[in-house]
Write a protein that binds this DNA or RNA. Structure first.
Length: 216
DNA sequence: AAAAGAGGCAACCGCCCTGTA
DNA sequence: ATACAGGGCGGTTGCCTCTTT
C-alpha cells in the first residue's frame, strides 16, 4: 500500500527534500540501484538525481523498496516468533527481524507497538513495570531495553533446539545459568514471569514435555 | 453526514559502532 | 592514537485512514 503524506511535509529543508516518497522518486531509486547497485548511500544522491539525504535513500530502500520485503500482513507464526524473541532480546528490532525473512526492523517495531505489545501483556500477563514478588532479593528487570548479554545473543538462533542447547554453554564455551544469568539483563519481566511465558509458548507450539524439562 | 478519536505506518532524528586514513 | 565518514539502529513523530459517536 502506497500512502503519500501531505505536501506540507515535502518542504525542502537545507536543500534536501524530506517527507513521503513519490512514485517517481521510488522509480528513480529502483532504476539507479538496479543499474549501478548500492555502492555508497551518502554519495548516491549526487549521481541519481534525487535531492534527498543518503540516509533517506537507505531507509526507503531497506524498509520499502527492496524486492525481498514482504508486504502482506503478519501471520500468527510470525507474531509468535516476534513475541518469542522479544522476550529474549528486548527491543532489538533488527535482531528480531533477522529471524523473519522479508520483514524489516521497522515493520517488526511498528507491528509490535500496534498489535503484539498488548497481546503479549494480556496473554502472558507480563507487565512493563515490574513489581516485586517476594522481597528485595527477587531478580528484577530494571529496563525493558536492549541490554542483552552479547554471549547470549550470539547463541540465540531461529531454531529452538539450538537455542535450548546453548542455554548451559554459550558460544564462548562459558557455562551459563539460563534461569538467572540472562533473563535479568533487559527482558520485560521477572524471571518467574518469563519462565511462565516460556512454559506457555512451549505448551502451544512445541512438544511441551520435552521443552519444559529442558528449560526448567 | 460530520466530527472526533484511535490505530497504523512511513519517515525522520540522533546516537552509536565500525572501518579507514 | 585519533578523527572522520558511513552505515545501522531504536525511539519518536506526524500524517493518513478507519471507526465510532
Amino acid at each position: 500500500m502506497l500512502r503519500l503524506k501531505t505536501p506540507k511535509s515535502e518542504m525542502n529543508t537545507g536543500g534536501l527534500k524530506k517527507g513521503s516518497w513519490s512514485r517517481e522518486e521510488d522509480q528513480m531509486l529502483i532504476s539507479y540501484i538496479s543499474r549501478y547497485d548500492i555502492w555508497n548511500w551518502s554519495q548516491m544522491p549526487r549521481f541519481s538525481g534525487l535531492s534527498r539525504s543518503g540516509k533517506s535513500y537507505r531507509l526507503r530502500w531497506m524498509n520499502y523498496l527492496k524486492p525481498s520485503i514482504k508486504k502482506d500482513s503478519f501471520s500468527k507464526e510470525e507474531d509468535d516468533i516476534i513475541i518469542h524473541y522479544h522476550s529474549i532480546l528486548g527491543n532489538r528490532w533488527s535482531a528480531i527481524a533477522s529471524r523473519l525473512p522479508g520483514r524489516t526492523d521497522n515493520d517488526v517495531k511498528n507491528h509490535w507497538h500496534a498489535h503484539l505489545k498488548k497481546r503479549a501483556i494480556d496473554r502472558y500477563n507480563l507487565t512493563p513495570k515490574i513489581t516485586a514478588h517476594d522481597d528485595d532479593s527477587d531478580e528484577m528487570i530494571q529496563q525493558p531495553t536492549n541490554h542483552v548479554n552479547k554471549n547470549f545473543e550470539s547463541c540465540v538462533s531461529p531454531d529452538i533446539d539450538t537455542f535450548l542447547s546453548c542455554i548451559t554453554t554459550t558460544s564462548t564455551g562459558q557455562e551459563v545459568d539460563f534461569r538467572v544469568g540472562y533473563y535479568d539483563t533487559g527482558s520485560p519481566g521477572t524471571v518467574n514471569e518469563l519462565q511462565c511465558l516460556w512454559h506457555q509458548l512451549c505448551s502451544e507450539n512445541m512438544d511441551h514435555e520435552k521443552y519444559h524439562m529442558n528449560v526448567f
